[in-house]
Write a protein that binds this DNA or RNA. Structure first.
Length: 879
RNA sequence: GCCGGGAUGGCGGAACUGGUAGACGCAGCGGACUCAAAAUCCGCCGGUGGCGACAUCGUGGGGGUUCGAUUCCCCCUCCCGGCACCA
């Protein structure tokens, strides 16, 4: 054993050991094995080139949990794979003229090497990449099952079109009116494509959120908001246009205000708007303006309410009154029926609209003590809780719930409407006009139409040698891919060239990890051993998209009979982002130039706060922008590779765990990394000292159970108590996933152990205390710094493999003490402490406290008003 | 606007179900070792007053409950994240 800590040697040793023994290969246990299973999964990476710090943090958290559960007696599984389809590969292909497949597989090879060098306890026998036909054939297979069940269907619809990526985006992929990847303003286009009826599962997706106590509150509320359930009434305004009868359907949550309707408004895309603009050029122009302008939803929110009359009118379903129909730019085609009833008196938007266009405002709700004015909006106009119907005929006096029920009943009896649950969630459009994705298994035949590819012809294999050039989908030019026989009539036909949204790939990989090598089925019985995932770990940015799609997809798999569980992820941990300082400066042309933190020298004020910085190269000043997410564009990323090369994987892992709790953001600090390395070096040096100085004092073979005898001298009993106290706290923190305090517990343990005498009279009696303490410390550290722990464990002779040792628990006997120190308070203020025998009665404690000097001083001979004793903690004398 | 989460030294962060606020680390200061430097080790390290024992203030701001509040309740300010003409 080297006296000096050499991480590269230590880490190679440990990794070679694990590799040669297949330490992390997980299996379904034989009968009689009672170990509980623990499936720990970190979100798999997109193979973009190399790992970033976010990956290191994510996978270290998962690895710590995996290794700790293994030592606690769980049958653990931690797999890894690659989310390998996607646009960056195509963009790289355009740039480098290399097929996306090669770029992707090269990246996978490199990143896999990085993951290995970090020493993660990954079962690589389960590795998968979503771009492999063996994987994506099951995307296609389940898609066909969805088609059979009507869950997948084709329709033409107005979609979000990303003009840069030349593809359709799901609603979830549009952020503030821009493409989530390109940031380009999204356009609206009408395109045929396949949709998955996630809305059929809306009720369950929402309801089950209440049964996911292991998920962060905020993720559950984000999903609930996204699903957006609302209860209301859907009803129709009948009309006749050119003698043709029709119905204008609307949805409202305020059916109690139906008698206050003075107009209706439809979206620009609504059929009535199209109809009316046929012979009204001004209206047609307005409709066109809305269509083009109304794509940026962020602008929508602040946009002025604009509208135009269609000249058409409909009949009120209850009064028969004529109601004018307007086109309104604030009405969304995608929600409900794309039309609303207008009740200016009781809806703020309708009120603004009516004021602007001089439409009548009719009060039909009143609140006692408030007076209505049709010139100014007041918040109570829309108050469901206090409002009562007025000027509403037979509904007068009714409160919200009764009024809605009565109105719905009347509409129902006329066949013009009923109550209805409305969802914000929309069906998931999965067609993408891209090459590097899973082909949609459909064949277009001139006589048979769209024909599903039969199961036995799966997979529809994506040609891997295409080099996209940026214009459209290269599959459309691949005759060998396009040409096929119609599965139904055998005639010459063409394949669908759209591929699936890559969120499909990541919607079920967790289940496939349980069933490696199965080429007969999507998943098998092994999935029901491992599923659900016990602990899922990933970034908060996936709170809606990936997690919602995965929940939906797994429910479909359940309904097809493939999975037994209702939810795929029992517990979810959303790790915080990794941040770093940002330095920039304005360029002469008005742009912004960024500088990497290692290119600048900091200037601090007297208190140590950062004031500014200078470029090291030429001493010129640069601005300090503060802390932000590590990103390529701001040049403030830190490459994990250089970190590993300089300090080793264990330091990287320890720092990641120590710097902040997993769910919080982590601020990068080179100095703290250095500190983490210093600690590991101290552990190593201590281990070396124990081996050379302490072990020789123990009888041969005593190391394995070096539990110190009772009756230790006080200084040694104190050391041992400290170690076990810290361990108890660390175990508690582990349960809360508070790994930063587990790491500091390890530091405290070492601090305590270093205080034990290694020379002099006490050294012999100290030996078992030190040897036991180090054994606890190594096991506590082993999930975080597995290489260091592994090598020291073996070198010192604790055992063959620390992986097979038991998770350490504190010894209650070590925690006992004869005398304890209680906090002494006088009038609630801290005034020193009192030492009492550990078994002291309440009366004894009170007497001792009253006799203390601070209490005597305060009481000045008077009896205390009260004495509060908290056993084992404090005593408070109230004068 | 609505929903969720925050605010603690120079910094990252601790504080179990209300019980010594600032653990552990980083930075800083002082010292030991060294020809010197690095590394390492030891000590100090929230503000104010005091040589000192100690006193006093202090967990974003203001109130409250309590023997005792970073922790519980009410009001307010600011920050972060999500949603948002959703009818």
């Amino acid at each position: 054993m080297q006296a000096q800590y050499q991480p590269s040697v230590v880490e190679q040793d440990a990794q070679a050991w694990w590799d040669s023994r297949g330490s992390f290969v997980a299996r379904e246990p034989d009968a009689g094995d009672t170990r509980p299973k623990y499936y720990c999964l970190s979100m798999f990476p997109y193979p973009s080139g190399k790992l970033h710090m976010g990956h290191v943090r994510n996978y270290t958290i998962g690895d710590v949990l995996t290794r700790q559960h293994r030592m606690r007696g769980y049958n653990v599984m931690q797999p890894m794979g690659w989310d390998a389809f996607g646009l960056p590969a195509e963009n790289a292909a355009i740039q480098n003229r290399v097929p996306p497949a090669r770029w992707t597989y090269d990246n996978i090879a490199y990143m896999k090497g990085q993951l290995r060098s970090l020493g993660f306890a990954i079962d690589w026998t389960r590795e998968l990449a979503t771009c492999q036909p063996e994987y994506y054939r099951w995307n296609q297979w389940l898609f066909l099952r969805m088609l059979e069940r009507g869950i997948a269907y084709k329709r033409t619809q107005v979609v979000n079109w990303d003009p840069v990526d030349q593809t359709v985006l799901a609603n979830e992929q549009v952020i503030d009116g821009r493409g989530w990847r390109t940031g380009a303003p999204v356009e609206k286009r009408e395109i045929p494509g396949y949709y998955l009826a996630i809305t059929r599962y809306a009720e369950e997706l929402l309801g089950e959120l209440d049964h996911l106590p292991g998920w962060p509150e905020r993720v559950r509320t984000m999903q609930a908001n996204w699903i957006g359930r609302s209860e209301g009434v859907r009803f129709a305004f009948p009309y006749e246009i050119d003698g043709e009868p029709g119905q204008l359907w609307v949805y409202t949550t305020r059916a109690d205000t139906i008698m206050g309707v003075t107009f209706c408004a439809v979206a620009a895309e609504h059929p009535l708007a199209a109809r009316a603009s046929r012979d009204d050029p001004a209206l047609a122009a307005f409709v066109e303006e809305c269509r083009r302008g109304s794509v940026m939803e962020a602008d929508l929110a602040t946009m002025e309410k604009k509208g135009m009359p269609t000249g058409l009118s409909v009949r009120h379903p209850l009064t028969g009154e004529s109601v004018p129909v307007w086109v309104g730019n604030y009405v969304l085609m995608g929600y409900g029926d794309g039309a609303v009833m207008g009740v200016p008196a009781h809806d703020e938007r309708d009120f603004a609209f009516a004021l602007r266009y001089g439409l009548p405002i009719r009060q039909v709700i009143a609140v006692e003590g408030e007076s209505f004015s049709d010139s100014r909006w007041q918040d109570w106009y829309a108050d469901k809780a206090r409002g009562r119907c007025v000027h509403s005929g037979r509904y007068d006096g009714l409160a919200y719930a009764q009024a809605v029920a009565a109105v719905a009943g009347d509409l129902r009896s006329r066949g013009l409407g009923d109550t209805r649950v409305q969802w914000r969630l929309r069906d998931w459009g999965v067609s993408r006009q891209r090459y590097w994705g899973c082909p949609i298994p459909i064949v277009h035949c001139e006589s048979c139409g769209d024909v599903p590819v039969p199961d036995e012809q799966l997979p529809v294999v994506l040609p891997e040698d295409c080099v996209p050039d940026g214009s459209g989908n290269p599959l459309a030019r691949r005759e060998d891919f396009l040409r096929c026989a119609c599965p139904r009539c055998g005639a010459q036909a063409r394949r669908e060239t759209d591929t699936m949204d890559t969120f499909v790939d990541s919607s079920w990989y967790y289940a496939r990890f349980a069933c490696p090598g199965n080429d007969q089925a999507m998943v098998d019985a092994r999935a029901n051993y491992w599923m659900p995932v016990d602990q899922y770990i990933g970034g908060i940015e996936h709170a809606i998209l990936h997690l919602l799609y995965s929940r939906f997809w797994s429910k479909v798999m359940r309904d097809v009979g493939l999975l037994a569980c209702d939810e795929p992820f029992a517990n979810l941990l959303t790790q915080g982002m990794v941040l770093n300082h940002i330095f920039s400066r304005r360029t002469a042309r008005g742009g912004i130039e960024y500088f990497a933190p290692d290119e600048v020298d900091l200037q601090t004020d007297g208190a140590g706060r950062i004031q500014g910085a200078q470029l090291r190269a030429d001493g010129s000043a640069v601005d300090y922008e503060g802390i932000g997410t590590m990103s390529k564009s701001k040049r403030n990323g830190v490459d994990p590779q250089s970190l590993i090369e300089t300090y080793g994987a264990d330091t990287a892992r320890f720092y990641m765990m120590f710097a902040s709790p997993p769910e919080q953001t982590l601020e990068w600090s080179d100095a703290s990394v250095e500190g983490a390395f210093r600690f590991l070096r101290r552990v190593w040096a201590f281990g070396h000292a124990v081996r050379t100085e302490v072990l020789p004092r123990l009888p041969a073979g005593a190391i394995a159970n070096a539990a110190p005898a009772a009756g230790l001298p006080a200084p040694l009993a104190d050391v041992r108590r400290e170690v076990h106290l810290v361990l108890r706290q660390a175990n508690h923190d582990f349960g809360k996933f508070q790994f930063n305090t587990v790491a500091s517990a390890a530091m405290k343990m070492l601090n305590a152990l270093e205080r034990a005498p290694r020379e002099g009279e006490l050294a012999v009696q100290a030996a078992p205390v030190v040897v036991e303490g180090l054994s606890l410390l190594l096991r506590l550290l082993s999930p975080i710094t597995p290489h260091l722990a592994h090598v020291l464990w073996r070198e010192l002779g604790y055992g063959e493999d620390i992986l097979d040792s038991a998770w350490p628990e504190p010894d209650p006997a070590a925690l006992e003490q004869d005398e304890i120190e209680l906090v002494l308070q006088v009038n609630g203020k801290h005034r020193g402490s009192v030492r009492v025998p550990s078994g002291a009665s309440r009366e004894d404690i009170e007497r001792l406290a009253l006799a203390s000097e601070p209490a005597q001083r305060q009481l000045a001979g008077q009896p205390p008003r009260r004495v509060v004793v908290v056993p084992g903690r404090l005593v408070n004398v109230v004068a």
